[in-house]
């Protein structure tokens, strides 16, 4: 066997932790999609050489502490208001790369207004939208994107449209707005999907720097604690239940 021992040296390195990911251990639950998506964001910023130019806007929700994990300047926004905060940062620093990182509660419930209007104004920002169909941080309540029949802390008998309304595809709605140049739905539940998602994210960042308008990258994601499943089972459940309703792929690309 010894003849095939791989030597640990820089020229043999094929994949390492991005430099912009801090040493701090993430507070996310084991297997949480946030960690993988954070890594993609860090990689894209690094590869585009934008570390000194990027300002992130973190939301309210589990990813409020995104600022502890990616080594760039951050501002933490009030619940739902990230797109408004990002609007001002980008308008005042047009040469900077500005993105928001928001969950489904932040973007699609309390922040619907700010998100839609930032799209409509065509702000040159990237909106990273994590849709796991549940409120993770507050303990697993219904999100606007919770699937029909899905059980959460506030839909203990399953989401009933008569009581709770329907899940909605805000990314599809946003695609109708003229200020938006790119909308795509991605996931990170398999290595292939992670690689595709990174390409999409990079395109979104390039759009923002080129002043083409707003780009939104939706990640259909898991919340294994909220869904009460193991990380691996959550990925499977997501594929079987979430993806048929939230199909992956580009929704708008101009």
């Amino acid at each position: 066997m010894a003849e095939f021992e791989v030597e640990i040296k820089p020229e043999n390195l094929v994949y390492g932790t991005p430099k912009l990911i801090t040493d701090r251990i993430m507070h996310y639950c084991p297997g949480c999609s946030h960690g993988t998506i954070h890594k993609l964001v860090a990689e894209v910023i690094e590869e585009m050489g934008l570390a000194e130019k990027t300002i992130g806007v973190s939301p309210v929700g589990c990813s409020v502490f995104a600022y502890n994990y990616i080594d760039i300047d951050w501002v933490q926004a009030a619940h739902g208001r990230a797109a408004a905060v990002a609007t001002a940062v980008k308008r005042l620093y047009p040469e900077k790369m500005v993105f928001t990182y928001q969950g489904d509660g932040d973007l699609a419930a309390i922040g619907t207004g700010e998100s839609i209007h930032a799209c409509n104004r065509g702000e040159n920002i990237v909106v990273i939208y994590i849709n796991n169909a549940i409120y993770g941080m507050t303990g697993g309540q219904m999100a606007p994107t919770t699937l029909l029949g899905m059980k959460t802390a506030t839909t203990p008998y399953g989401r009933d449209p008569k009581l709770h309304g329907y899940p909605y595809k805000i990314a599809d709605m946003m695609a109708h707005l003229d200020g938006v140049c790119y909308i795509t739905r991605q996931s990170v539940h398999t290595p292939v999907n992670v690689r595709k998602a990174k390409k999409a994210l990079r395109k979104a960042f390039e759009n923002a720097m080129a002043g083409k308008g707003l780009s939104l990258v939706e990640f259909v994601a898991t919340c294994n604690s909220g869904w009460k499943q193991s990380p691996v089972a959550s990925n499977r459940w997501m594929e079987e239940n979430m993806l048929p309703f939230y199909p992956l792929g580009d929704i708008k690309d101009i």
Partner: peptide, 19 residues
Amino acid sequence: GCASCAVICPDSCITVYRQ
């Protein structure tokens, strides 16, 4: 050394080498 494990790792704890 295909790096599938490292690419998907949410906690950035895998480094991959290939020869």
